[in-house]
């Protein structure tokens, strides 16, 4: 309720410009802006450089976007700012190393690692989140617990595996030539997996009964409870899905990047949150699109400034989007009425 009133106030005070723009559906508006920007860059820097930066933007965006899908589910359904999500990605990657070391072939090790991470995510629900929810913990307590859990996960991994750089040994140097443009083979794979995961999660949420229940629960928890939905079941499924997706993206990241240590989750974390918020919390399409928008803007910015400003560009974009598009790209219309 509070959210709605506050949003309304924000809307009411928003500038004339943004209310005029708000008449368009936001994804269409965004697409239009991106196309205009791309055309400008093509004119300014020539098609090859502009398009290569675009390809690179899609690659960079797919890493964060895919990682953010699991995060947005937990944030949307459970309203939990899971600061340990980045470390779940790390856990997935290192479970793969563990199972491969135990003798499983790599693809099987990856699959086992995803299942193990999903189980771990469910375990955190049972051991940490459920008791906190029952005790009606405030948002700061939840936040603190998430930081604590993140530390425990990351440093347990480091305790056993060390902090030295690891690799999964995939060939990261092959690339696909599209005319004068280049796209790494594994990067293309990451992009395809990212889009597939987004579509699958989106379809599950839209068409399956559990997906519908999850959305109902996300929209109004109290209403979902009184209408007889098994809320604990929904929460469990959300955690399993989030853990599985985290491991999937962590493993894909580790494979396609080729070099990592237990810190990669925490360094990715802020980008993951940015993608989630930009896309609209709780929306899997939004998470990936949010990631892509950040990726594109950062890579495009390298045409204009030295690449070392890339992270600052991402954060500046995040602030601008929060100010002018506070519900995110795919934020639900329900909140607006």
């Amino acid at each position: 309720m509070t959210d709605t009133t506050q949003t309304e106030r924000t809307e009411a005070r928003a500038s004339v410009l943004s209310s005029a723009l708000a008449a368009l559906p936001r994804p269409a508006l965004l697409l239009a802006v991106l196309i205009v920007l791309l055309c400008a860059l093509v004119i300014a820097f020539g098609p090859v450089r502009a398009l290569q930066a675009t390809v690179n933007g899609f690659v960079a965006g797919s890493y964060t976007g895919l990682g953010a899908i699991g995060l947005t589910l937990v944030l949307g359904v459970l309203k939990l700012v899971n600061f340990a999500h980045g470390d779940l990605l790390v856990t997935g990657a290192y479970f793969t190393i563990l199972f491969a070391w135990l003798g499983l072939p790599l693809p099987l090790a990856m699959l086992t690692a995803m299942l193990a991470t999903a189980a771990l995510a469910l375990a955190t629900e049972k051991i940490i989140w459920q008791p906190l929810r029952l005790a009606k913990a405030g948002s700061l307590q939840l936040f603190l617990s998430a930081i604590g859990l993140g530390l425990v996960l990351r440093f347990t991994v480091q305790f056993f595996a060390g902090s030295q750089v690891r690799t999964l040994g995939a060939n990261v140097v092959t690339s696909i030539a599209i005319g004068p443009l280049r796209l790494g083979t594994l990067q293309a794979l990451a992009l395809v997996v990212g889009i597939s995961a987004m579509v699958i999660v989106g379809l599950v949420l839209r068409f399956t009964s559990i997906g519908k229940e999850m959305r109902a629960f996300a929209d109004n928890r109290a209403l979902a409870e009184v209408s007889g939905i098994d809320t604990q079941h929904i929460i469990n499924v959300t955690w399993i899905a989030s853990g599985f997706l985290a491991a999937l993206s962590g493993i894909l990241y580790a494979t396609a990047i080729g070099s990592f240590n237990p810190n990669f989750g925490i360094t990715l974390l802020l980008s993951l949150f940015a993608a989630t918020v930009l896309g609209g919390i709780g929306n899997p399409y939004g998470a990936l699109v949010g990631g892509l928008v950040i990726g594109l803007s950062q890579e495009w910015s390298t045409l204009l400034f030295n690449a070392r400003w890339k992270p600052a560009v991402g954060f500046a974009l995040l602030i601008l989007m929060l100010m002018f598009m506070p519900q995110g790209i795919f934020g639900r219309a329900k909140r607006r009425s």
Partner: peptide, 24 residues
Amino acid sequence: AGQQASLRFIIVGVFLLLISRLRP
């Protein structure tokens, strides 16, 4: 040294989890 350093942060993490659970 690496494990000792990790252990330190595991202890801090567990402590944060306990405090927010036991005395929110």
